[in-house]
Each structure stands twice: as C-alpha cells, then as structure tokens.
Simulated scan of single mutants.
Amino acid sequence: MHFGASDIYIEPGPNHYIVQFRKYGKVFPSGQLPIDLGDRIISFFKFKSSLDISEKRKPQSGSFEQKISDCLYSFRISTLPSVYKKESLVIRLFLQNASYPITSLCYFLPTAEELLKLVSKSQGLILFCGATGSGKTTTLYSLVKYCSETLGRHVISLEDPVESSQSYMLQIQVNERAGVTYASGLKAILRHSPDVIMIGEIRDEETAQIAVRAALSGHLVLSTIHAKDTVNCIYRLMDLHISIEEIRQAAVAIIAQCLIHLKDSDSRKAIYEILADDVLHDAMKAIIEGREYQLPVERTLEYQRAWIESGKDQVTTNGSIR
C-alpha cells in the first residue's frame, strides 16, 4: 500500500514464487516466496474472495473488501493455472469511495475547465478512449461526481466490474449469470429517471444503440470505447451500426487521454485530446462527404506530449498550447 502499487503479482517458478508490483504501468520485482508459503497465501486470498480453494486447474476470479489504516480497499483477485502445476495470482487494488477534482487530474487547467463545461450540458453522448491504465475511469468518476454534487443531478452507473464504490451515485454491477448485461442493465436504468448515466464500456452493438438513444432522449451519457484516437471513435461507432447522422445528433464530445510523468515527482497527470464543438462538426462533415479528417495538430496527444517534454508547456487562456 505504501509503495502505491496498483497490482500485485505472485507467479510460480520451478522452485519458488516470484512477487512483483505494478506502479504507473511498470512492473517492479519485490522478492521470492517458498513454494509452501506461496501456496498458503494464494489459498488465503481465494478463501477471502469466496473462490473454490480446491480448484487449481481452472481460472477463477473474485473480490473482497478490507479496511486498512482507516481506508477501505477493494481487492480484485484473479488466478490462472501454470505449466508448473501451480497457480498464478494477480491482486488488483482499488481505494474505495475515492474520487478527485478534475482540476487535480489535468496537466493543463484550461482542459479541466473545458471538460466541466462539456458535462454541464443537459444531454448528449461523451465518449472517452485511451489505453488500458490511462486513467479513463478515474476521469469518469471525477466528472460524474461534479454532476452529482455540484450540478445536483441524479447519476447512475453501469460497470463491469465496479472498480470503486462511490457514495454520490447509484452503481449497478454487470452480472451476466443473473441476466444483467450492459444492454439489459442500461434498459433498466432508463426506467429509474437518471439525469446522467455512466457506462463502464460500450462493447457491443446493442449497448451502443441504447446509449445513443438515451443521449438523444434527454440524458447525459458518459462512457468509454476502444479506439485508437478521437476521430477513430466515430468509425468505431459506425462499425457498431450507429449511423453517422445519429452520431452527429448525439455526440457532445469524444475525448482521448493518456498519462504523463511529472518531472522531479513520483506522480502523473492526464492530458486530453478533445473533439468537440467546431472540430467535432468539421470531423462529422468530412466523414459524411467521404473525406479523411485530420485533427488540428496542436490538439493531438502526440503534440501535447512532445511540447511538455520540450519544457515549453505554456498554455493560453483558451486552452491552446503556445
């Protein structure tokens, strides 16, 4: 916990278990465990997660919560059998009820102001894309907390899994065994009169269609989607059989994000590539006309990252880099 790790790996070798930590996307070796001690530790975490301790041939996953130093943590557990006839264990750590002001997450303050302006809209679809571990969920939690506590809106989330319990909104866990999929869960949420809906991820055609309909019918919908960048998010929605006209009407903003390490500091901040307002309109128009659209270079993540690394990271009051 004091190291600030997001994941703990306990992996079997021929004569011992290897323990490693993940922090900020990098894996750090921590030490070794004797086979018998490693077996007992893995059995303990399986027991805490209500998994089958005797089953070692199949992958299993579960979770439990534990209070440590007055802070409540969620431990997400995953086991995987290995060639050494021993199980590998991964523990993902989540601080519960943790959310941060968007101004503390953004590298550029004008970007935070632009994001708050976007979520202040009464309806529409706001999509985030970025690599795994780029902070998308942290950004979503921050923005929906602003919607709930500052704007006074009713917020419901649908997640798989719920990564961090948040007291300011109603959170629904996807449970496919019980028939609660993203699509069916989203239909049920719409009957609970939400103002803002947070969807953990748009994975399939049906979820995409319901999310767009919700955005068009007076709800603000925030979600993530797998795509290379902001412009390719539009094509990804089209792959999910959302028409360009529906996207044009529903989309408020499409946002890509990544994390950068701060110089002389053991922390990170987020930078954002925002496709909204005039540039979103221009992108839609180009796609409708069958033309390739290129985002203005100064808005791209690549340009922002290069500018920061050059040591010239000044911004104007409207959020552009100079």
Rank of each mutant, 00 (worst) to 15 (best):
H241W: 12
K136T: 04
H16R: 13
R76C: 05
G179H: 03
R213N: 14
E65M: 09
E245T: 11
I260M: 11
E206W: 03
S267A: 15
A131F: 02
V221T: 01
R268Y: 10
Q257M: 10
C258V: 06
V174I: 14
R40W: 10
H219M: 06
R177S: 13
I35F: 06
Y272E: 01
S43T: 11
V83R: 14
I172H: 02
T230C: 12
N15Q: 11
A211N: 10
G152F: 00
L105I: 01
E206D: 13
S88K: 09
A98T: 12
Y146R: 05
H192M: 14
L295F: 07
S142R: 00
S61M: 00
A283E: 03
H219S: 06
I271G: 04
P110G: 01
H241P: 03
G152R: 02
A214E: 04
E11F: 11
A188T: 13
R22F: 06
T316N: 13
H192V: 11
E201V: 05
A98W: 15
S43C: 10
L105D: 06
K26C: 12
L240Q: 05
D36F: 15
K269M: 08
V19Q: 03
K285Q: 15
S120Y: 02
D282V: 02
E159I: 05
V212N: 05
V212F: 08
V83I: 13
L115M: 07
N318E: 14
N15K: 12
Q66Y: 11
G179T: 11
R153P: 01
K117E: 15
L115D: 01
L51G: 00
V180N: 10
Q314V: 13
L72T: 07
N15S: 15
T230W: 01
K187T: 11
L127F: 00
L127P: 00
K145D: 12
N15A: 14
